[in-house]
Computed example of a mutant assay.
Amino acid sequence: MSNPGSGRDGEHVIFRQYLDAVGLQGLAGAEAAGLHTSEWYALSLLGREGSLTPGELATRTGLTTGATTRLIDRLERAGYARRTPDPTDRRRVHVEPVPDALDRVEEVVGPARRRLAEVLAHYTPDQRALIFDYFARAAPAFRAATEEIRATAPPGRARKSG
């Protein structure tokens, strides 16, 4: 198989259609939850990690600390997250998801989970293992590519911070 980014062949087109569909589904999920895409991503991080400090959240989202503070404020106002004191260091706080809010998120992503389960049902267990091996390897590659893009963005073209 050729490199998905190497040309306009059929594999490249299929790969782009897949990435566009995933991105569009993420946008629709954020909109359905009443969130901006950066908030949707932050909530996904919190759902996986359980809790993060504001600094960790800033690093993982690529936002400035000020933009992260505003993001956390919006997540709190919407009832999706809360700040909690660090039990070992009173100067620090953690941001954690509100459990009931994650149930609301599950409702939003339900259609995607259901449809993807239908797709995956067509594959053998070995084929599914290969697909999930790809996901496990591709996620860090995409994160590294994101960092590379951010590091090399020309001045004035860098992402807005809020």
Rank of each mutant, 00 (worst) to 15 (best):
M1N: 13
N3R: 01
H12K: 08
I14G: 07
F15G: 03
Y18I: 00
G23D: 07
Q25L: 13
A28L: 07
G29M: 00
A30G: 00
A33I: 00
G34S: 08
E39M: 08
E39Y: 14
L43H: 10
G50P: 00
L52W: 14
T53Y: 02
T53Q: 03
A67Q: 06
T69V: 15
I72K: 14
I72A: 14
I72P: 03
D73C: 11
R74Y: 00
G79I: 06
A81N: 00
A81L: 01
T84R: 09
T84Y: 02
T84G: 03
D86R: 07
D86G: 02
R91A: 06
P99C: 14
L102P: 00
R104S: 15
V105H: 10
V108H: 15
V109I: 08
A112C: 07
A112P: 01
R115V: 08
V119S: 11
L120H: 14
P125H: 15
D126E: 07
R128F: 03
A129Y: 07
A129G: 06
L130V: 05
L130C: 05
F135R: 08
A136R: 15
A136W: 04
R137G: 05
R137P: 03
A139R: 12
A141L: 09
A144N: 01
T146D: 10
T146K: 06
I149C: 07
T152E: 03
P154Y: 05
S161N: 12
G162F: 13
